[in-house]
């Protein structure tokens, strides 16, 4: 999956515009970053990458790049 594809998938998952997902952007600064976004991410990691990601790991994510780095099988 290319970087563009990952950003598009992430944008679709948390229901935001791709333009908001600059790699250094703080997740807390995104309006969409709430518990529903976490649930959507858990689903995305399971469906698209076959991974069960822990909530501890999700809570470690601080910026957009942290999520992108984990988007692999």
């Amino acid at each position: 999956m290319t970087l563009e594809q990952k950003i598009a998938l992430l944008a679709e998952t948390i229901e935001t515009d791709s333009k908001n997902l600059i790699s250094t952007r703080s997740l807390d600064s995104l309006d969409e970053w709430d518990s529903l976004a976490l649930i959507s991410l858990i689903g995305m990691f399971s469906k698209s990458f076959g991974r069960n990601i822990s909530v501890e790991k999700l809570r470690e994510f601080k910026i957009v790049q942290d999520i992108i780095d984990e988007m692999h099988e």
């Binding site: 518990s35 529903l36 976490l38 649930i39 858990i42 689903g43 399971s46 069960n52 990601i53 822990s54 909530v55 999700l58």
Partner: peptide, 12 residues
């Protein structure tokens, strides 16, 4: 309800 924790429990 901690939705994210319940969800990961379920998937596991």
């Amino acid at each position: 309800m901690n939705g994210p924790e319940i969800f990961t429990f379920t998937l596991n």
